[in-house]
Amino acid sequence: MIRESAIRIPFRYAAGGAGSRFLAALRDERRILGARCDGCRRVFAPLRSFCSSCGASPLEEIALGPGGRVEAWTARADGTVFALVRLDGADTALLHRLVGLPGEPRRGMRVRARFAAERRASILDIAGFEPEEGASA
């Protein structure tokens, strides 16, 4: 005997101090913000309010990229390509999509953030990362 049920539940999540600043910068300044910990000498992407390694807070806000390198990628059956992109200036990678690919991506390839025309303080204000001009795919 099996019982099935379905329900729709509304949620409303606060991005918080660092998250709000990060998302507003995508929307208003087309900048990707990260955080530098002076103690650990590490730069985190995205911006956060405390160091993931040593716990220090607050951290210094810095702009990253918009260029970077593909550290790893995978393609879904529908063709969407996801990648871990290490932005220039960052020590950690950001999970996002690769777009405008002429062919199969490759590890280490140079990419650059393409911002969406309509931005609403969402991680999708970055439409995706596309191959940097002159980069071979």
């Binding site: 019982r3 099935e4 539940i9 509304p10 999540y13 303080a121």
Partner: peptide, 24 residues
């Protein structure tokens, strides 16, 4: 300090439960 940003979404949840024999 930026104005607080929210992510609002509706999540569809569905379940399929097998009954214990006694409940069946």
């Amino acid at each position: 300090m930026s104005a607080p940003v929210h992510v609002a979404l509706e999540m569809d949840q569905s379940w399929r439960y097998a009954a214990p024999a006694a409940m069946a």
